[in-house]
Design a protein around this nucleic acid. Structure first.
Length: 421
RNA sequence: GGAGAGGUGCCUGAGUGGAUUAAAGGGAUGGUUUCGAAAACCAUUGUAGAGUAAUCUACCGUGAGUUCGAAUCUCACCCUCUCCGCCA
């Protein structure tokens, strides 16, 4: 949600943002609704002022007759007032519905583009491995080493279902522990967040109503979160924080659920795109400042890179183009890890900032030292997501003999250095 | 799942249809006093919207309703607590 004053004063910016983000939003229509709504508010407030005055006169009236006269006058006035209120209710609903659909304005450094194909590489890390044998994809490796059971997975959990087995499980546990240790050193507060959540948490973070298809709805008003960003941001909904406590940094650990509607036919094999996975998410609330947002955005991006570097996984960072930005995102980097079997990088992390888009919806503020109350700004990035990260981990470390070497950083959590049969 | 109690401002807490402009106390901030502090005294102390401004409007968990008028009455929902049952 954006500041209504900004939309009123600079509708052109919103129009541009809609165009760049490939989002359909009719600014002129919205402003018309806003104008009518405001006119009505003014008129209703004037009526209320008359009523309030009349109430005082009713109380003070000495004669019963006077009182009756005023009451009958007020009854007449009420007919008009009821009508206005009904019209207002409809207008207000429409206004609120539209307010949730106004796209945030992309940063000027974000390249224009239609889709992820137009994202721009920012930097690369690590050496893409050269294999002197035919590389296997993660599916084959997992089958050969009995690490993932896809057949039973789809039998029990349906399409995109999977069972992790044996070392795959232990490695996931180790990866979580490792990633948490990295983030803990950077003072991120560990949280295990609920995935079963109410609608308001999803609306507050901007996933609803915009991305309704992608969220599992349980039909009783409860939903399954696609990321712990949703419960963690909602954790502070309605709060007035202290400036000296900012930035607040959380690492949220939770199962994540995604319908993947709209990606039918994409990545249907393996564990790249699954309905259910585990993720450690970095969530940050900071002061109302663009500079601070940018600084922290770079920081949480670096944190994720540090985690991947520790796992010895080659990656690159791309700057997402406007068409690949979500409704509320101002700027986003995706980190993509090298997947040898596909001979390309695939997304493992997504790092973005929102300014007050989410905090306005969630009403998260803070008091400055001068006593001013301001909306906080928010950011988030993946810490690590499993099992997806197993793909580059298994593939990049596969050996000619079919075994897989395990990156050093995980050894102390595992007690073994390779997967071998 | 069953039974009960409750939700009022930064906090405690009063308030069963009209003077509530939400009492009172506490806290916080500023001032007086003081060498300085404590105490005492005085003052200030919510959010949002409309307006150049004076000012006006809304908000007592949320939403709807009754009424000329609702923190107060009615209905639905949300949340918290207590007890019973079940349970990792």
């Amino acid at each position: 949600m954006l500041d209504i004053k900004l939309i009123r004063d600079y509708p052109g910016l919103i129009k541009e943002a809609s165009r760049k983000k490939k989002i359909n939003f009719d600014v002129e229509y919205f402003l018309e609704v806003d104008r009518k709504r405001r006119e009505l508010i003014k008129s209703i407030e004037e009526l209320n002022a008359i009523k309030n005055q009349a109430n005082k006169r009713i109380q003070l009236a000495e004669k019963d007759e006077d009182r009756k006269t005023i009451i009958s006058q007020m009854k007449e006035l009420d007919i008009n007032s009821d009508n206005q209120n009904q019209v207002f209710k409809k207008l207000d609903e429409e206004y609120k519905r539209l307010m949730l659909l106004v796209p945030n304005i992309p940063d000027e450094t974000v390249p224009e583009g239609d889709s992820d194909l137009d994202n721009v590489e920012v930097r690369k890390w690590g050496k893409v491995p050269n294999f002197n044998f035919t590389v296997k994809d993660h599916i084959q490796i997992a089958k050969d080493l009995d690490l993932i059971d896809f057949e039973k997975g789809s039998e029990i959990a349906g399409f995109r279902g999977y069972f992790l087995k044996k070392e795959a499980v232990l490695i996931c546990l180790a990866i979580w522990q490792y990633a948490m240790d990295v983030l803990r050193k950077k003072d991120f507060v560990p949280m295990i967040a609920p995935s079963l959540i109410k609608e308001s948490a999803l609306t507050g973070t901007g996933y609803l109503p915009q991305q309704e298809d992608e969220v599992y709805s349980l039909g009783d008003g409860m939903y399954l979160a696609g990321t712990s960003e949703v419960p963690l941001m909602s954790y502070h909904a309605g709060d007035v924080l202290k400036e000296e406590d900012l930035p607040l940094k959380y690492m949220g650990f939770s199962p994540c659920f995604r319908t993947e509607i709209g990606s039918y036919g994409k990545d249907t094999q393996g564990i790249l795109r699954v309905h259910e996975f585990m993720k450690i998410e970095q969530v940050v609330l900071c002061e109302n400042s663009k500079e601070e947002s940018i600084r922290l955005h770079e920081e949480i991006t670096k944190n994720a890179e540090e985690i991947l570097q520790g796992l010895e996984i080659p990656y690159h960072v791309v700057l997402n183009c406007t068409g690949d930005l979500g409704l509320g995102q101002v700027k986003k980097y995706d980190i993509e890890a090298w997947v040898p079997s596909q001979n390309r990088y695939r997304e493992t992390h997504s790092s973005s900032y929102f300014f007050d888009f989410q905090t306005r919806r969630l009403n998260i503020k803070y008091k400055t030292k001068q006593g001013e109350t301001k909306l906080a700004y928010s950011l988030n990035n993946t810490g690590i997501a499993t099992p997806r990260v197993l793909i580059p981990l298994l593939e990049n470390n596969q050996q000619k003999d079919g075994s897989v070497k395990i990156p050093k950083a995980l050894h102390k959590y595992l007690g073994f250095k390779e997967i071998k049969r």
